[in-house]
Simulated scan of single mutants.
Amino acid sequence: MPAHSPILNLPNILTLIRVATIPVLVAAFYLPFKGSNMVAAVLFLAAGLTDWLDGYLARKLGQTSPFGAFLDPVADKLIVAVALLMLVQQHATLWLTAPAMVIVCREITVSALREWMAELGLRAKVAVSAIGKIKTVTQMVAITLLLAVQPGYDIAGGMLMTPILWLSYLCLYVAMLLTLWSMFLYLKAAAPQFRRSRPRP
């Protein structure tokens, strides 16, 4: 009988902690105390680092599991989507809403694509690419900076763009472009299956 990694191994516990961080992140973001934005940024950054750590530990300790393979991307998408929703409300500008919308829509599309390819036994065809990993890092930097810096406004109600905000917006748009490019690569890999004729159930 092959050995099975227990569900509550160290990598999966770290992933569950990342999920449990989401309500704490939301509370820190909205509670009216000094430095709440920095606390939210640190929580998001820590969650991003545990994403790398749990994957590393799973490989190093030989504790990969079907549960971990399911939960890890779900945790990532949940915390990113929640953070982007909060930032869209705070910034209330098309320049942040547009890339946030693209990123969230891409995640839904690629998740559906991976599920469909898995049903065909071709999950490896849409595995995470190097571009996807770079996108994840760029996205993490952008969201962390945006959470850390509360936007200021002038008398007319226009947002005051500080150098940090310019940098964070730049990183977010780079992440959006990488998001679209990686989605194109996934769709290209799956394209032969779209053209195949399959009997309807």
Rank of each mutant, 00 (worst) to 15 (best):
T93P: 12
I13A: 03
H4A: 13
W95T: 14
R114I: 00
F44M: 03
I79Q: 10
S168N: 04
S111M: 14
F194V: 00
T136Y: 01
A58L: 03
R198Q: 14
A27D: 04
G68M: 12
R195L: 14
T97A: 11
D51V: 10
L187G: 04
I131K: 11
K60V: 08
S129C: 08
F33R: 02
A20I: 05
L122K: 14
V82D: 06
L78G: 06
P23R: 04
V26W: 01
L25R: 06
L178G: 05
T15Y: 06
L10S: 03
V74D: 13
V39H: 10
L31T: 07
T136I: 08
L178T: 12
T144R: 06
M86N: 07
M117K: 03
Q193D: 03
W95E: 14
L113G: 04
K34M: 14
L167E: 01
L178S: 04
S36I: 12
S129V: 05
K133A: 08
M159D: 04
D72M: 09
A118Q: 05
P6Y: 08
A47T: 02
T93G: 15
T97G: 01
L177Y: 12
A92K: 07
R106K: 14
S5R: 07
P11H: 10
P151I: 08
A148V: 01
P23D: 06
W181E: 10
L160N: 15
Y173R: 11
L16D: 06
C171P: 11
V26P: 00
M1Y: 10
A100N: 04
L180E: 08
T50L: 10
F44C: 04
L87F: 02
R59G: 05
L8Q: 09
V102M: 09
L185C: 12
L85N: 11
I79R: 03
M1H: 10
Y153A: 08
A98G: 05
L16N: 06
L187I: 12
T21Q: 13
S182I: 03
A190Q: 01
A124V: 00
T50F: 07
L10H: 05
T21K: 08
W166F: 14
A175K: 02
M183A: 13
L25P: 04
E107C: 11
V74I: 14
A47Y: 01
T97L: 09
R59V: 10
W116S: 00
M183T: 05
L45Y: 02
P23S: 07
G152E: 09
I108C: 14
G157N: 11
Q193C: 09
I17E: 00
A92W: 01
Y153H: 15
Y169C: 15
H91C: 06
A28T: 03
A69K: 13
D76Y: 02
P151W: 01
